[in-house]
Design a protein around this nucleic acid. Structure first.
Ligand SMILES: [Mn+2]
Ligand SMILES: [Mn+2]
Ligand SMILES: [Zn+2]
Ligand SMILES: [Zn+2]
Lengths: 139, 139
DNA sequence: AATATTTTGCAACAATGTTGCATTGCATTA
DNA sequence: TAATGCAATGCAACATTGTTGCAAAATATT
């Protein structure tokens, strides 16, 4: 189920470069979502901002990571754990953002509830974003 | 239930200025959410960008409008129809964004479903953002 | 009408994101 | 393994979005 770094890149027909390896590795060892600034500071090497933008965009297109909508409209990314592929994301899980520590979690086992809409509305995608206190911040 | 423009401003201890009147009026006659750019172009008078930012911020603080999280992380605002007040929002309704026309709806009568989270997680706020095709765009 | 308080517009800045292009690095093939 | 073609990177320049300080203007209060 879990693939290595080079393996994941190859499987998605991406050439193996230093930035892609380091950024993907950071996602794999991180518990929670990452913002652009996190990647800029924690990826080990100092990559150009533009390179990071382009790498993230490529990963999203290939179905390696997904973006997360947040209540404060900050952009965050997390690894896709489902069977996502190029152009087709299936990340139907709930996202949780802790008000105390700021961590954003993918709650992969919490299924998004079905919502009944008024007549005439067709659903393509449902995003559930919950904020509150996480399991590490309760006292 | 529906208050006038000056009335709403007074009730929230806001002085009645041209920008606040025009921007609040725009919200009241608009069906759906507004982005900063919409307000800049449709408020009738050309207000400074900064004035618009500050007016929106004030309205959010007073509970006159609320922000809407979107899948594409664009910032949108809509009138609060519930009993929101300074510092306390109660906009527990589902938001819908049409992929065809771009309109963002507050579905005031669609209640946000309860979501059961893992042990240790405490919920403060649940946002449900649905995208798809709206009632005006189905063919 | 005079005064005190708020709000506005401007300028300057910060943060975030995009594009074009020369240089560099990766993958392929000989 | 060396030569080649193609893709990715870094840099510069720019665009968009949002923030802050401050003088001038507008609003509220007396
Ligand atoms: Mn996720
Ligand atoms: Mn709403
Ligand atoms: Zn936490
Ligand atoms: Zn529509």
């Amino acid at each position: 189920m879990l693939y290595g770094i080079a393996e994941t890149l190859k499987k998605n027909q991406l050439s193996i470069t230093d930035s892609r390896k380091k950024i993907l590795e950071l996602f794999m060892r991180t518990n929670g979502a990452l913002a652009h600034a996190d990647i800029e500071h924690q990826s080990g090497t100092e990559f150009d901002r533009v390179t990071i933008y382009r790498t993230l965009q490529t990963f999203v297109e290939k179905g390696i990571i997904h973006t997360i909508p947040t209540a404060d409209n900050s952009v965050r990314y997390a690894l896709c754990k489902d069977q996502c592929s190029a152009g087709k994301h299936h990340d139907d899980h709930v996202h949780f953002m802790c008000d105390a520590c700021g961590t954003t979690y993918c709650l992969d086992h919490v299924v998004v509830p079905a919502v009944v809409l008024p007549k005439g509305f067709t659903v393509t995608q449902t995003d559930v974003v919950i904020s509150g206190t996480c399991k590490n911040c309760v006292q």
